[in-house]
Simulated scan of single mutants.
Amino acid sequence: MTDNSMFDEILGGIPLMAILRGMGVERSLAVATTAWDLGIEAVEVPVQTPTDVEALRVVAEAAAARGFRVGAGTVVTPEHVRQAKDAGAAFTVSPGFDVEVVRASHDAGLPALPGVATATEVQRALREGLTWMKAFPASLLGAGWFGAMHGPFPQATFVATGRMDAAAAPTFLKAGVRVVAVGSALEDPAQLPALAQLLA
């Protein structure tokens, strides 16, 4: 049995998370710093290439100096879990639900945020002891999906990921999403300030 209730602390008070996908080391650090300065404390760095892993290490080090924690994203193998741990990640995020990856992350001391898109996956995640889940791809699932899941699974807490931006975030938050994670939209430098306005 695993457990990811630590996300109550890591993400519980923050309705937004920035995903720094494929930005390289310097830009990842710059965007993370901007996010932190604007009050968006939660940051995820996907680990798909060696450069990504180095970006995670640099961003995690900078986050620790501020008392923040950074997650490793697109974690799809136990090897990714090891790389995340070595780079200083505080948690892992996956696009899908893989019990082996979840358990490897748990054993490494990193709470896992698995991806789900169906009632079956939500039920399996809950049976594994996971109450926090990443709904992906949220834009295709639609805001109504979250209300539908809340009925049979009131104990599930969702992070909406997948083509999210500052315009969509309020709709999903009103639908019961705890955190909206924004990735590709951050290519637009206006997105972080617009997202920060939602924190006001």
Rank of each mutant, 00 (worst) to 15 (best):
G96Q: 08
F97E: 06
D98E: 14
D98T: 04
D98L: 02
V99Y: 14
E100A: 14
V101I: 03
V102I: 05
R103C: 11
A104Q: 07
A104C: 12
A104H: 04
S105P: 07
D107A: 11
D107L: 09
D107C: 11
G109N: 06
P111N: 11
P111M: 09
A112Q: 07
A112E: 15
L113A: 06
L113D: 11
P114L: 06
P114K: 10
P114D: 08
V116S: 07
A117N: 10
A117M: 12
T118N: 00
T118P: 04
T120F: 03
E121A: 00
Q123C: 15
R124Q: 01
A125T: 05
A125I: 02
A125N: 04
A125E: 02
L126M: 07
E128T: 15
G129H: 03
L130A: 04
T131N: 12
W132L: 10
A138Y: 11
A138N: 05
S139I: 12
L140M: 11
L141C: 01
L141Q: 04
G142M: 11
A143P: 09
A143Y: 14
A143Q: 13
F146P: 09
G147D: 08
M149D: 12
H150I: 12
H150L: 15
H150D: 14
H150P: 12
H150T: 14
G151S: 11
G151I: 07
G151C: 08
P152S: 00
P152F: 01
P154T: 00
A156C: 03
A156Q: 06
A156M: 06
T157D: 14
T157E: 12
F158Y: 05
V159K: 10
V159C: 10
V159G: 13
A160R: 02
A160N: 06
T161C: 13
G162Y: 11
G162E: 09
R163L: 15
M164T: 05
M164Y: 10
A168H: 14
P170K: 02
T171I: 14
F172I: 15
F172D: 10
F172A: 06
F172G: 10
L173H: 13
L173R: 08
K174P: 10
K174T: 13
A175R: 09
G176R: 13
V177T: 06
R178L: 13
A181T: 11
A181G: 07
A181Y: 09
V182C: 00
V182N: 01
S184K: 06
A185Q: 05
L186Q: 03
D188C: 04
P189Y: 00
A190K: 06
A190F: 02
Q191N: 03
P193S: 01
A194V: 01
A196S: 05
